[in-house]
Amino acid sequence: MVVLNAVIEAAGLEKTYPARDRGGTPFRAVAGIGLRVERGEAFGFLGPNGAGKSSTMRMLGGVSAPTAGTLRILGLDPAAHGRRVRARLGVVPQDDSLDVHLTVRENLLVYGRYFGLSRKAVRERAGELLEFARLTEKADERVEHLSGGMRRRLTIARALINDPEILLLDEPTTGLDPQARHVLWDRLFRLKQDGVTLILTTHYMDEAEQLCDRLVIMDKGLIADEGSPRELIERHITREVLELRFPPGEHEQVAVKLGRDGLPEPERLEVLPDRLLWYAEDGETALARATAAGVQPITALVRRATLEDVFLRLTGRSLTD
């Protein structure tokens, strides 16, 4: 039985920053979004840079007051109970912001004291967390000697010092190599199994697919759609995608030749600068049809549809633009 128990509830949430210079225009980073995150869920914000993800995360972290709308974190209004809210959250900022002059363990100790935990309690907890982050052997080394992946794991360990109910992660694996990413994902899976609610932002669709039970796609401060990765793909995209490459400049022509406007629903052709995407239930059949139409691509590739395709469909832009 699933017990629904919202840890985050937001309606009409907006964030406008005042103009930086006199006479400048205020910047509306978040333009009215509604959210509901259940306890124990892994919830993601997927979107390109500047979509409003980080601004939303700052509001959820209780360090940025919404300009408009309502927000409840763990049932509390963060504007009135910021301290109590933040005491129950863990925050992993995009830049690790560790103290490079202190050792790995010391970083946990000083952070734990911010929460008013006793020296003894912090020591015990730091030991467990070093084990969890696989940093026990590095405990007494200075942070400046750690790799990027280790630093990120330490930042996550630090965010867990107060045993938070919600862990907020802003771009958790940006800048990490593939192996470090997998180690990190593995640690996050474990947290999720332990019942910690994970809320993360990412512009990697594979990360969103790997980690998130449910996600929202954000663009220009708004939520374009919401659902599980599977649901989003089924709602907006066919099961498979045929990617065709032609010499530069010919893609438009080929699209017409393939009968772009006369394709049976839900099939669709999308022209990108460097390739043509043919959304079809069966990619191989589509390729056969293309060949029958006398089209000769330089390369042809059939793949599963991903969230990247959903994003392209919803916003008309690719995530990495």
Binding site: G61, V63, G82, R83, R84, R86, A87, L89, V91, P93, D95, S97, D99, Y111, Y114, F115, G116, N162
Partner: peptide, 14 residues
């Protein structure tokens, strides 16, 4: 640069 304040601001400290 060191982001000591923003880090502390994410905790219960005001």
């Amino acid at each position: 640069r060191e982001r000591i304040y923003p880090t502390a601001a994410a905790t219960p400290l005001e």
